[in-house]
Amino acid sequence: APAIVRADTKKTYHWKMTNAYGPGSPFYVEGPGSPTDFCRKVEEMSGGRMKIQHFAAGELIPALEGFNAVASGVVEMNAGNAYFWAGKIPAAQYFTTVPFGMNTQGMNAWLYHGGGLELWHELYAPKGLIAFPMGNTGVQMTGWFRKPINTVEDFKGLKMRIPGLAGKVYAELGVAVRLLPGGEIFPALERGVIDAAEFVGPYQDRRLGLQKAAKYYYTTGWHEPTNVTELMINKSAWESLPEDLQAIVKAAAAACNVESQAWCESVNAEALTDLVENEGVIAQPLPDDVVARLKEVTEKTLTDMAAADPDTARVHESFMAFREQHKAWAAISEKTFLAL
């Protein structure tokens, strides 16, 4: 009823947002299209009717505790990546990125218009949550290697910092997977405790100084062809918002999704040139047969994962069906254009 909505429009909503990333991180916390930018946008668009106080990781709660905080309703929102919750909702991986899955255009197409977002909401609803895409790094990089990778054999005994699903795939090929917190990557790679490390992309990697520790930069990340930032919201808090504020939140999230990716695209272009021209970095893709082998193992790993959990199976099917369709189109659109 309109009367209720009018009553709500007088109220100012004071919300809190936690973040899985630490203070100051570009893209993940600060900068165009970042979560702090999202909070600013919402306040401006709502004429100050909705104020969101942002807390970087560690300020209110530790990095990966946002799920519990939002689910219990103490905090209304959390910024992070869905795949952090894979231990709680196995299918969550698919809402961030899928190895050999789709690029950012394909991912957005699936989420917004291919049934992805509906599945996301359906899976989160029983936990009292709802989520929207709120950012994207674009394609990430395979990572930094101290020695070149020429054949699949070179993976045998290679010590690599690589978390998540990709770690499992690498491990199948004989890589010794090392889990390390972000701050320990540089000293470990520099001293050779690890031979290789994956982080984000040229801009963020340069900030960590990884180019001082390893010179072989393998590009186009097969393991993260896109990477969606998740805006997670407590469902009952969401439902208590008047419709116009809900629309503002959705629009601000979508705006950040575009803007953050555009920003990454521009700073990565600059950083890559700098790395190659001024830091002596050798940037190149993995050899074709290596990629083919990684793809084989990935497909099997994904199928196994889907078989183990009915929810994952549903999301997997939807994602893969969409990918099939999108692939044919991308092959004659983007791929053809980039080859011109």
Binding site: G22, P23, G24, S25, P26, G182, G183, E184, F186, P187, E190, R206, R207, L208, G209, K212, A213
Partner: peptide, 22 residues
């Protein structure tokens, strides 16, 4: 004296590489 937790955290906040601060 490196390695140091303070320097790792500061490198994140200040946007400098960990190695430089070390």
């Amino acid at each position: 004296i490196p390695p140091s937790l303070v320097l790792i955290l500061l490198s994140e906040i200040l946007g400098e590489s960990v190695g430089t601060l070390f």
